[in-house]
Simulated assay, not measured.
Amino acid sequence: MFPNVEPNNYSYPSVLKAIGGLGCVQNGMKIHTHVLKYGFGFDVVVASCLAGMYAKCGLFDLSMRAFDEMTKRDVPSWNTVMSCYYQSGKYEGALGLLKRRRVWGFNLIR
């Protein structure tokens, strides 16, 4: 419909959050392909949303793979993945990420 409109680092997070909320993992995988193809896999917000989308769809292995492949992580990216684990009842996974976060130097208290 709009051939000159390209997705960007603002549109991908919204789409990925919607897909995660709906649990449409097949569509999420297609968007993941587009993210990589167009070079947005290095964007910390887009990459965090990819990890979150997979976790919300119950695919925690893919979520952790997307998270581990992030070239840069920040506190919100750690919180995104930990929150998905917690909200899915995977409390041990959330605590494991908290421990990993400390090892990487992202402490809760400074």
Rank of each mutant, 00 (worst) to 15 (best):
F40V: 03
P13A: 12
R110S: 12
A94R: 13
R100D: 13
L22V: 02
E69C: 09
S48N: 07
G96M: 13
G23Y: 03
G105S: 11
I109F: 10
E69I: 02
D68L: 08
S63H: 01
C57N: 01
K99E: 15
F2V: 08
N8P: 02
V46A: 06
V15F: 03
K72E: 15
S48E: 07
Y12R: 04
F2I: 05
S88F: 06
G23E: 01
G41I: 03
D68W: 10
D61C: 14
A18S: 08
V46G: 08
K30R: 13
T71W: 08
K99S: 13
S11R: 10
N4W: 04
L50G: 06
V5G: 03
T33A: 12
M53W: 04
G39L: 07
S63R: 00
Q26K: 10
P7D: 06
V75W: 02
L50K: 09
V15W: 02
P76V: 15
Y10K: 14
Y10G: 09
T80P: 08
Y91D: 10
V46C: 11
Q87Y: 12
G105E: 08
S11T: 15
C49R: 07
D43I: 04
R110L: 12
V25K: 08
Q26D: 13
C24V: 05
V44P: 01
V15A: 10
G39A: 11
L97C: 03
V46Y: 05
C84H: 03
E6Y: 13
N27K: 14
K90F: 10
G28C: 04
G39S: 11
Y38H: 05
S14M: 12
A66S: 11
L22S: 01
K72I: 15
C24Q: 04
T33W: 05
L95K: 12
S14I: 09
M64P: 00
G93E: 09
F60T: 02
W104I: 01
G96W: 09
V15C: 06
S77C: 06
R100L: 14
V75C: 06
Y38W: 03
L98T: 06
Y10H: 15
I19D: 03
P76N: 14
